[in-house]
Design a protein around this nucleic acid. Structure first.
Lengths: 157, 157
DNA sequence: GCCAAAATCACCCGAAAGTATGAATAGGAT
DNA sequence: ATCCTATTCATACTTTCGGGTGATTTTGGC
């Protein structure tokens, strides 16, 4: 069927193809002339584009990054549970010493003064002194309240 | 003296001036030819410089300023975890009575036996009995450990 | 009504916790 | 060098806690 159609209209098809090729050639030549006639403009345009890019690259490479400082006040809800992060600021405000914090931690683990003393290789009296000063600074009256407040303030897990 | 010198050497001077002018003209023509001969290069160079500048300007104008966000954490201490769900099953397993749970809660708030007794309108001895039975059932030896275990088991917030 | 569990209270005792005071030593800041 | 703080320890005393025993009353289920 296809070959029959082709053999019947062979001259027409050939003519059509020739015409199309000619038109294509003409268009191509036109484009060539266009390019040749405007080669300077195209060259300059390319240069412009390239050097604009270079300028941008240079600016990005050499320019100090503009830093805009935004201060955001973020409210942090501190829960007694969950992931624990030590609140050094609060500890500093209360004026707790390293040793006092250590004692507070062991108190919060439910250890007795005697156990804490043994753990830290000091005498019972020392732990009593530490805990007393701890309660003073934390403004509490017992180890239970110290534990409560300590957890609330993020001093202990 | 100057006028005598000038009148004496007038031809020489004129010749010198003429020569100088001619040389100057030649140099100027040379420069002109140089410019004319390299007008394309100069044009392209100018374009390059201009568009490099444009690129830099563009980059400066359009570049997003690097935003440095400083987050100041404002701490909000939350007393009780809002998502506390009482573990009734655990309480039943341990066989804790209503009153014992009440005492446990107040113990966990850091109250002394005397304070708890006053709060619940009962005598100190009663609270002692309750807490003793509580410690037995919870298999702990002190109110501190009861608080610890109670929080772990979801008996108290 | 009866029984068991829960809740209440009392007394005593030893251990632990907490208070008060004093003091020695070490390390850091002025 | 001097002062201050942290750390250590001691002694003495008071209060609180925890355990043991016993008793009475209330409550809820059978």
């Amino acid at each position: 069927m296809t070959s029959g159609f082709f053999s019947k209209h062979r001259p027409t098809i050939l003519y059509g193809i020739s015409l199309a090729l000619l038109l294509f050639l003409l268009k191509w030549l036109e484009l060539r002339f266009l390019i040749i006639n405007h080669v300077i403009e195209i060259y300059v345009g390319a240069i412009a584009v390239i050097f604009t890019g270079l300028g941008i690259w240079l600016a990005m490479k050499l320019m100090k990054p503009k830093v805009e400082t935004v201060i955001v006040e973020k409210e942090v809800h501190v829960f007694s549970d969950g992931s624990f992060t030590f609140n050094a600021q609060e500890a500093h405000i209360l004026g707790l010493s390293k040793r006092e914090l250590e004692v507070l931690q062991l108190i919060a683990e439910g250890m007795s003064n005697q156990e804490i003393a043994t753990r830290l290789f000091v005498s019972l009296n020392t732990i009593k002194t530490h805990s007393s000063r701890l309660f003073e600074k934390m403004e509490v009256k017992s180890r239970m309240q110290a534990m409560e407040k300590g957890k609330r303030l993020g001093l202990i897990p």
